[in-house]
Design a protein around this nucleic acid. Structure first.
Lengths: 145, 145
DNA sequence: TTCCTTGCAAAACTTTTGCATTAAA
DNA sequence: TTTAATGCAAAAGTTTTGCAAGGAA
């Protein structure tokens, strides 16, 4: 039995990820992962809670937070810090950077090949780079005159 | 009357900055600015409140937050978002990037010339770059074996 | 049974706000 | 005198936690 090409089997993907990352599958975890992994996207905890409740799912706020923290700590998703207001959870765990639209708050992925460094500072002695977070802030271009 | 070279007159600097940025000087604002502008550094609102109170200053938490927001909105300081826990205020308003020590939480400035981009993505149509935030995460280098 | 997960409510924490008081222009 | 800034307490918003109940192995 095959799924429609435009509706890939997210459940199967989630199940595989759970086993890959050593995460015990439960109904709530499947629902949260299915929502996030349906596409590369950036969602807040509150958005996830609202989406799930809108579809009739029975899930608590505490479970959403606990689950997102679990996913992030295992590497299933990535937690972003782009504004001080709240955390964003990124279902794209491959390396990439972000545009941040200051007007709308929207995040847009920037693929790795679009950014090249010709120079980076050496880490301080005894330390090593654990990652690079790059956020390019965007605003509306003013009308020409 | 000259100040000692290793103890520059921070008060005079603050007064000049206030007039440059159109900020009305008050006792609390001077105290907060003097603390921040004494050196290039990264402080949280809570740290600033604690420092001021430790020196006997009479200042409220609300005033610290209001003042930091005022300073940041006028460009006297810069607000950073490196971890989701709290905001950091940077007295270095010149362009630069940051190392973030994941073990200690400490921030270290990275001067502009230490980072060079040989490629950056074009902003989406109708938008322009408003700034680039780069955070290089650091961890302790594991012992060699 | 045993261990883990969930839900609820409460707590913790950072930041903002309303309002009376105080200080600055 | 007129306007703006401060302090306090309370509120708001996000995230975490304690604990009893429910579910999986």
């Amino acid at each position: 039995m095959e799924s429609h090409p435009s509706v890939p089997d997210v459940s199967a993907l989630c199940a595989k990820r759970f086993s890959d990352f050593g995460i015990r599958p439960t109904a709530q975890r499947m629902q949260i992962a299915s929502l996030l992994l349906a596409a590369p996207q950036h969602l807040s905890a509150e958005q996830i809670l609202a989406c799930l409740r809108a579809t009739g799912a029975r899930v608590s706020k505490a479970t959403v937070y606990n689950t997102l923290n679990l996913f992030a700590s295992r590497g299933l998703i990535r937690q972003l810090c782009v504004d001080g207001a709240r955390a964003w959870f990124d279902s794209n765990i491959g390396p990439h950077y972000h545009f941040h639209d200051l007007d709308s708050g929207r995040l847009i992925d920037v693929p790795i090949p679009d950014v090249q460094f010709s120079r980076l500072p050496p880490p301080p002695p005894g330390m090593e780079m654990a990652g690079i977070d790059l956020v390019i802030r965007l605003r509306k271009k003013p009308a020409e005159g």
